[in-house]
Structure formats: C-alpha cells, structure tokens
Write a protein that binds this DNA or RNA. Structure first.
Length: 691
RNA sequence: GCGCCCGUAGCUCAGUUGGAUAGAGCACGGGAUUUCUAAUCCCGCGGUCGCAGGUUCGAGUCCUGCCGGGCGUGCCA
C-alpha cells in the first residue's frame, strides 16, 4: 500500500517546476483530503497563496498547474477541477483505487495468523512480543556497539510488533527513538495517574516501530527516593522477618508500612535519623540496605508486570532504567557541569558577561542559597525562566543538603540516552504539569552541547509529549469516593466486569445471543473492557484533560472500542458464513488465490468510499507519527469502520449478484478487516472474532 | 504577579497547523430487519466557535486587549 498523498504530491511537484521553473522546487502543494465529498477526494490549496506572491490570478495559476500535470496524472485521477477562489479538486479514478488495493500483498505466514477465534489470547501474545521477527532492524545500527546495547535482551526485537504490514514499506531513514513512559513508583501500587503515560507511550512505541524505527522503550522507575530509607528502616525495626522471607509480604502491605513509617518518623526523631541513615547506606551500596531495596523492587514488579500484560503494554524488566540506574553518574555529571559552566566573571544568577554561544541560549552554573543551580539565558543575556519575584529561576541540580534530585537524574538520563543508547530522538510521555521542568531540562541539554552531533541528524530531538489529566464527572481529578487515588488494577477489573455484564445482557436477549461459552464470555469481556478504557483515552486529543465516563467508553455507538471491534467481528462473520457455504475454512475464503488475485470492482459508491478509506491508512500512520497525535488514528478507524458499515448495509457480499462481484467484495472485506486489525494493534487493542 | 494550557451544539469532544456552507457521538424527533451480527444503518432538530478589535482574497485556527477556568511557579517527581 502506498501513500495516495505522496503519489499526488509527486504529480504536483512536477507541475510546479514546469510552471515556476526552479522557484517551484520544494513548494508544498498543500494537498488535503477534500473538506466536502462533493469536491472530490483531495484538494490542493497551493494556487491561492502562490498567486498572491506572483501577482497572478489564483484561478489562472491553478489552470496553468493543471495544464502542466505530467501524463501519469490521467491514470491516477479524473480531470482536475478548479473551483471557488482557486482550489484544485482531485477525484481519484476507481480503476486506480482498485489497482492499488490489488497491489496489497496477502497476509504473510506468521504465528498470529494461525490463531483461530478460540484463542484470541494468542493474538495478544504475538502483539506484545511472542512472535519472532526476521527483521532485526540492523539498518539502525551505527557501527560502534556499546555495552548498553549488548546488554539489551533480544526480546526487544521480538516486540517489533505487527506481522501484517499491508505492503507498507519501512522508513527509508530509520531512527533510534527512545520512548520514556509509564514510570511507576516502586513500593506503591499503580493508580489511574499512570494509565495515560503507560498506554500513550506504548502506542508511540508501536507506531514508530511499525514505521521501521528502532524503538528503545525506557521505564524510568521511581525507585530511589527517600521513601526507601523509611521503608527499610521500618522493616528492619518492625518486621525483620519480611526481609528474610519476603514471600509473606505483599505490595499492599508495603504501602501501609510506608504510611506507618511516615507517622513514626513524625513522632520519633530517632527513627527519622535511622531512615536517613538507610538512604545514605543504600546510596553507598551497603549490602544489607541493597538487599532490602531489591526485595521491595521485586515485589513491586510482581504487581505491575501483570498490569502491563493485561493492558498489552510491551514493557519488560529489560526496559527498566529507574532513578537508581543513574546513581553512579550523578556525582561526575554535576562536577563536570560545575567546571564547564561556572562563570568566573559573573555572580551566581547573574547573566554571563561574555556569552560565547553566538545566537544560541547558554547556561551558567553556580551555588545559590546553598543549592547548586543551572541558570538559562537567551542569546541577549535575558533569563529564560523567572520566579514569582521576576528573578532568574534556576534548575536545581544539587540540594543544599548535598543530595541530588530528579533534575539531576533526568540530566544523567538524557546524556545516557544520547551517548550510550545513541538516540536520535527522545520522547518523554508525562503529564502536562511537568512542562516547565522539561523545558529547563531540554534547554540545559542543548546549551551543554549534548544534542549536537557530527552525524545526521545533526541535532537530537527532545520532545515532551505531554497529556492532560483524567477527570471525574465532576470535572475534578478522578478519585474514589473517599478521595483516594483509584488503583489501576481496580479500574481494569471494573471495566471488564461492566463489559461482561453487557455481554451477558445480550446473551439473554433473543436475536443478540451468540451462544457464547463461559470461557468466551470472559475472553470477550476482557478484550472489550480493556479495549474500551484504552480507546477512550487514546481517542482524546492528548493535550487536553478528559472526562472519564464508563457509559461513553463502553457504548456501541460512536467512536468507541466496542464499535470498532463490532465492525471487525461483523466482517469475520461473513467469512464464517461464506466458509460454511463453500465448505472451506474461513481463512481460505479470504485468502484463497481466487480472492487475492481477482480484480477489485468499485461500482457502488459505498465500495468506492470503503476503498478510499482503506488506502488512507498509510497517510494516517504518517501523520500520527509526525505529530504524535494518536487521536488521528482513532478518528481514521472510526471513519473506516463507518465506511464499512455503510458498505455492509448496501452491498450484499455473499449474495452478490455475480461471482466476480462476490469475490471483489470479499476482498474489500478482507482488506477492511486487516486494516482495522492492524490499526487497533497499533493502539494495543486486540480484536475478537465474535461479539 | 509571571509563565503554559484551555473556552466550539443542552452534554462529551473533533477540527489535518490559514481554506469552500464549522463536524461527530450522546440526548431529542422520525424511519429501516422474510436477506451476510439491529451492539447496526438512514433522515431530522440543534452554533454569536467566551467577548472586542486587528492582520488578508479568506480566521474556530495567527496577533493584541479583556472575561472565565485549569495547571505550574527554588531545593517533591
């Protein structure tokens, strides 16, 4: 499947050069899907803006462009139309659309394709890492192998996810992209606040991997704070047995221990001192403290790994590089920052007297109120950040008590990711409230010169893919009735229970009953419930807050996971029926040479509309990756599912009037199902054969 | 105070980076099932895009100022 947009782009590129000469090279033809179906499939808005600069009439210029189109245009689209102030309307030829559909190769043999309806769980496994891939992404290798790369488990490549590429080529210039997401706190249960980062980051990873980039997932665990001192001290004092036979203690206990330890610390200065000593011991590498810490981390992992599995999130222990990982790097990093950026000729917090960075922002490092600070300056010497008093607002990298903080760890992580993971691009998936912190972090890394490199790309991209909060119906951050954070495990349980109730209600109703076994009901409920939670979240504009509503996300109507999954199940049902009639297998009905090789016929408007939607998948994935805008994908899938529903209503498939048409429609169904399945897979949502 | 984000139909949200008559879903009203899954589809109703200016062939989108809301704002992450 190739991008229709790119095909049109090359036509316009040539026409622009023919009309404008060299000035026309590199001009964006401003191609967009048509805003209104009546105007065609795509439109170019290039003539209006260009005419202005050339002092020409927009419609005249549009006409000259149309006249200058290469002859190949006649194969691709109907004659161009010029409309309104100078729009060029483009309608693709049904014969060309059909040829493009025919060019999509069949599903390659892979374990996931041998799955039948009874073992949808197998799909999940292949989606999150069960299927070995022959593609090891060697193109992304830059020669020098680092210890970090070698230490990475081969499991990473096995997560290169989707076997059915629909004939979509991989990126010509694959990049190494670090995606930093999820980041649960150790010794605490995951709560609803971790949901967005976890599933949004996982979707970025899937989409970028699908495009052929080398994705390096990083789980920046909160595993090194002062809470461990408290916890270890408390365990040693109150429950030493837990440290020798950890099986007896669960994570939920750790949480209550932590609360008790907090209370104790407030009442008892001696305990406070012990806790502090444990932190020091831990950070020094004291074996006893370290053992206790490891136990706590392991117990936490036993809690969050099943949640990842349930969500279909591809994070593994190999992706974990928590705060602890950077411990040894903090001291040297800070010392280096001090020597490189201390300003001898200006006081701490004062602008540098002789900025040597040319037109780039620069940083200075110095001690203020006992804390080691980084200040950021514009090329003109003005502070980039200000505090409430209007004074330069620094990023603290060492507290006045000598301890390092998150900014220090984050700096070390940037450096590690660029220097040792060889990242071309780093994406941080955290909530929007940390925006300023990341601005400062990125400004520091850039000014320190870490992002500049000799090889291409010349500048490492640092991006904060921020997201809004999940709100309750009262528009306040989602909490339990008693005001506590909602545990993620509970949220997912409720989603599945609600989905199960809906399925059981249908089973009790005549006409909707599918005759599911108990096992099937649970399986479908799991897929629908988890899918609904994920889809509702991913379908939002990432930046804005969104209101959590069970009823909306589990609705069959509208842009929801159940609707999408229903569309898929409906298609699959056609195959089952067709297979019964033919006495062949369901897969056989879809992938037989007969169906795969015969031409698609696009006579009915609904067939044409569906064909167009199917082929738009490529450009959609492209836009999603370019802008990290996942809701473009959900919107696309909704549009595709809608196009299928309309096709389904008006075009009989199995009872098509002619054999050729039947085959053609089966092929359309097959392609629609494959795109739905791959698209949902990119969202980490699995499909079911029946629902 | 300063910085960032937001304000679009009764409700929940889109709006492809400046394009044609601002779109969905829910809710509300009407219609479609002897036919492949009606958990579906079709039709209708519903708008001062917070307010006021500005930029231009053209503004929900860009600029300025107000009004209203959220978040952040020196040693938590």
């Amino acid at each position: 499947m190739k991008s229709m947009l790119l095909c049109l782009q090359s036509l316009f590129a040539e026409a622009l050069v023919r009309v404008l000469g060299e000035d026309g090279r590199g001009v964006d033809p401003l191609l967009r899907p048509a805003t209104d179906e009546r105007h065609g499939d795509y439109q170019s808005n290039v003539a209006m803006g260009l005419a202005k600069r050339m002092q020409a009439k927009p419609r005249d210029l549009a006409q000259r462009l149309v006249d200058a189109m290469p002859s190949a245009a006649a194969q691709i689209c109907e004659p161009f139309e010029i409309a309104g102030p100078g729009f060029i309307n483009i309608r693709l030829k049904p014969t060309w659309l059909a040829a493009e559909l025919n060019a999509i190769p069949p599903v390659p043999d892979s374990p996931s394709e041998t799955c039948d309806s009874q073992s949808a769980i197998c799909d999940l496994q292949s989606a999150i890492g069960g299927s070995p891939s022959s593609d090891s992404g060697t193109t992304g290798n830059r020669g020098l192998s680092s210890p970090a790369r070698e230490s990475q488990s081969p499991a990473r490549d096995s997560r290169s996810p989707i076997a059915d590429r629909l004939g979509i080529p991989r990126a010509a210039d694959p990049q190494s992209v670090v995606v930093d997401y999820s980041s649960p706190n150790i010794a605490k249960q995951m709560h609803v606040g971790h949901l967005r980062s976890t599933i949004i980051g996982d979707t970025f990873s899937r989409v970028l991997a699908f495009q052929g980039h080398r994705v390096i997932r990083q789980n920046h665990l909160g595993d090194w704070g002062k809470q461990f001192g408290m916890l270890i001290a408390w365990l040693k004092e109150k429950m030493p047995a837990a440290l020798t036979s950890p099986a007896d203690v669960r994570l939920a206990d750790l949480e209550s221990f932590y609360r008790e330890a907090n209370a104790l610390a407030e009442a008892d200065p001696a305990f406070q001192e012990k806790a502090r000593a444990e932190v020091v011991a831990l950070h020094r590498g004291d074996p006893g403290a370290l053992a206790a810490w490891r136990y706590i981390v392991d117990e936490s992992r036993r809690h969050y790994m099943p949640i990842y599995a349930r969500l279909g999130v591809g994070l593994t222990p190999e992706d974990e590089r928590g705060e602890s990982f950077y411990n040894d790097r903090l001291e040297p990093l800070v010392r280096e920052m001090e020597t490189s950026f201390s300003c001898a000729d200006s006081a701490p917090g004062e602008p540098p007297s002789s900025p040597d960075s040319g037109d780039r922002p620069c940083i200075t490092v110095g001690v203020s109120e006992g804390a080691l600070c980084v200040w950021h300056w514009t090329p003109a010497g003005a502070p980039m950040f200000k505090n409430p008093e209007g004074q330069p607002f620094p990023m603290i990298i060492r507290k006045s008590d000598g301890a390092f903080i998150y900014a220090t760890t984050d700096l070390a992580a940037v450096r590690f990711r660029i220097g040792e993971l060889h990242a071309d691009r780093i994406i941080y998936v955290t909530d929007a409230r940390q925006a300023q912190h990341f601005e400062m972090l990125f400004a520091t890394a850039r000014a320190a010169g870490w992002t500049r490199r000799g090889e291409k790309p010349a500048e490492v991209r640092l991006e904060h893919a921020s997201f809004g909060s999940i709100l309750g119906e009262d528009r306040k951050p989602l909490k339990t009735r008693s005001g506590e954070n909602i545990r993620l495990a509970d949220l997912l349980d409720e989603a599945v229970n609600r989905a199960e109730a809906l399925i059981r209600a249908n089973e009790a109703e005549e006409g909707k009953c599918r005759g599911f076994t108990e096992e099937e009901i649970r399986d479908v409920a799991e897929a629908v419930g988890i899918g609904a939670v994920k889809y509702a979240d991913l379908g939002q504009n990432r930046q804005s807050d969104y209101v959590f509503s069970w009823d909306r996300m589990l609705a069959m109507e509208g842009n929801t996971a159940p609707y999408m999954m229903y569309a898929y199940a409906r298609i699959r049902s056609i195959y089952r029926k067709g297979a019964q009639a033919d006495g062949s297998t369901a897969e056989g009905a879809a992938n037989s040479a007969e169906v795969a090789c015969r031409a698609v016929i696009l006579g009915h408007p609904a067939e044409r509309a569906l064909a167009l939607r199917i082929l738009r998948f490529v450009e959609t994935v492209e836009s999603v990756a370019a802008g990290l805008r996942i809701n473009l994908l959900t919107e696309y899938l909704y549009d595709l599912a809608g196009a299928f529903m309309k096709f389904y209503e008006s075009c009989p498939v199995l009872a098509a009037p002619e054999a050729d048409l039947r085959v053609s429609r089966l092929r359309l169904c097959d392609l629609a199902a494959r795109v739905l399945r791959v698209g949902l897979d990119l969202l980490g949502i699995r499909v079911v054969e029946r629902m």
